[in-house]
């Protein structure tokens, strides 16, 4: 089954300089009751974004109109906690194509990659440079290239390369997924079972 193809983006970015953002913040448990993958974007960061009456909290970055774009830039250890893939769905459904942080929790990273949402891990220093660039100019453009594995602050030209599992990179740039791959080896699975 084909998934979304990701090769290259150039976009402004949304800054969220908080560390250890867990998946309960990204999408609280009470919104996990849907049985499809769509619509979770409405409740992305629900309790930070809206008050108890459902009114937007003006000081939360997603409610600040000057910040927009297809990249979320967040503090280290992003996506820790619950394995809920709904977190990746919510970010993608909201319109993000990539998340940049100086550290990602494992399960989140895998979930993101399985949903065409690219986790880009940068150094602490580079993360700070990105935040500084966005705070200096909310429209600062960030370029992310998966094929050549670099992330760049376009205005200053500063860039850093990032790691990505070569297999996952092939999946994302070609739009195929893990199930397609394992199914292509199905006879080996049956052979294993008969060992």
């Amino acid at each position: 089954m084909s998934t979304k193809i990701f090769k290259h983006i150039q976009t402004s970015a949304v800054p969220l300089p908080i560390e250890n953002i867990d998946t309960d913040q990204i999408i609280p448990a009470r919104f996990l009751k849907a049985t499809t993958r769509e619509g979770f974007g409405n409740n992305l960061f629900r309790d930070w974004r809206f008050d108890n009456n459902g009114n937007p909290k003006q000081d939360f970055v997603l409610n600040e109109p000057i910040y927009s774009g297809k990249v979320l830039v967040a503090g280290k250890n992003f996506g820790c906690g619950s394995s809920r893939e709904h977190a990746a769905w919510a970010l993608a459904d909201y319109g993000f194509d990539a998340v940049v942080s100086s550290f990602f929790a494992d399960i989140f990273k895998g979930n993101a990659l399985n949903n065409g949402l690219l986790p880009v891990q940068v150094s602490d220093d580079f993360l700070k440079k990105i935040f500084d660039a966005i705070y200096a100019d909310p429209h600062a453009v960030i370029e992310i290239d998966l094929v050549d594995q670099f992330i760049k602050i376009v205005a200053s030209g500063e860039q850093e390369s990032f790691e990505v599992n070569p297999y996952k990179k092939a999946c994302m740039t070609n739009g195929y997924d893990d199930i397609d791959y394992i199914l292509s080896k199905k006879e080996l699975v049956v052979e294993f079972e008969n060992r």
């Binding site: 893939e85 895998g110 399985n114 394992i182 199905k186």
Partner: peptide
């Protein structure tokens, strides 16, 4: 612990 795409993967392949 795995995400839902992997749940589907294990359902489909036991791997």
């Amino acid at each position: 612990g795995i995400g839902t795409s992997q749940v589907e993967q294990v359902m489909a392949t036991q791997c």
